[in-house]
Design a binder for these strands. Structure first.
Length: 259
DNA sequence: ATGGCATGACAATCATGA
């Protein structure tokens, strides 16, 4: 089984990339973030033509998340939940379903903008609600994966220039503590379960030739419960779509599991 | 140097991203 996550920064603009990527990477589930479109504009037909069933919750202009399910491989998604039941929110940032026996949680975590801002407080509150809800969810679903754009670089080795970024949004101690609380639930960062190249990142700014200079951050993650971690055989970042014409600023992350 | 790109909403710039 393969689970993947990709912040596409507009599914309308990136539909061709998603189609091309899925044809070469027929994963069982692809979690998408930043759809930036309303539900009536979701390309259900185009995704279905690839053999994937779409489950999504979108909104105008911002946010929006989706689960694309390879139904021939893993069947239909069950017990679909949109957003956090314990957190009233207009912003569409979370979608969850049981797929192939795994509770798959797809999240677009708040950006935070700047430490100390209102948006930063919202980010920490959202993370707190997520952690509490997950604690309960993991009791009901021992096999659970939390995939998405966390907007947190958990360690300095996940940052191209830690000195320049020290204390800033995406790397601040408060955000890293929130990430650690998720780990405290028993969730493991699959990427760090295996040997990885140094300076592995999942996002690069569009500006300043950041990708060319590999000036990036690792902020897209696949965390899994201990029962699922036992089955995990690989986790890799696929940099290839970031080299394509008019790319998303994020690139896919893929985790592989034994049956 | 708070810029640079990119996207969407909207019709010239502006909000947001990370």
């Amino acid at each position: 089984m393969q689970l993947a996550t990709w912040n596409v920064n507009s599914l309308k603009v990136r539909l061709g990339h998603v189609q091309d990527w899925l044809r070469s990477n027929p994963v069982d589930v692809l979690c998408l973030q930043e759809l930036k479109l309303t539900d009536e504009n979701f390309p259900i037909t185009e995704i279905a033509a690839l053999g994937y069933t779409s489950h999504f919750t979108g909104q105008k202009t911002y946010n929006g998340v989706a689960l694309l399910v390879n139904h021939a491989k893993v069947g239909e998604a069950k017990d679909l939940v949109k957003n956090l039941p314990n957190f009233a929110d207009e912003q569409q940032r979370l979608i969850t379903a049981t797929i192939g026996g795994v509770r798959v949680v797809c999240g677009y975590f708040p950006n935070g903008q700047a430490v100390g801002s209102d948006k930063f407080a919202y980010k920490l509150n959202w993370l707190d609600a997520l952690t509490h809800w997950l604690s309960d969810e993991m009791e009901r679903h021992p096999q659970l994966a939390l995939l998405g754009d966390y907007n947190i670089a958990p360690e300095d080795r996940d940052v191209h220039d830690p000195a320049k970024w020290e204390g800033q949004n995406l790397v601040s101690p408060q955000e890293r503590q929130a990430f650690a609380r998720l780990q405290g639930l028993g969730l493991r960062d699959t990427f760090r379960m295996f040997d990885q190249p140094e300076k592995s990142f999942s996002w690069w700014d569009y500006r300043m030739g950041a990708f060319r200079r590999n000036a990036g951050l690792r902020i897209d993650h696949i965390l899994v419960s201990s029962a699922l971690a036992e089955r995990c055989t690989a986790c890799d970042i696929d940099r290839v779509p970031r080299t394509w014409e008019q790319p998303s600023d994020h690139t896919p992350v893929v985790a592989t599991f034994k049956d």
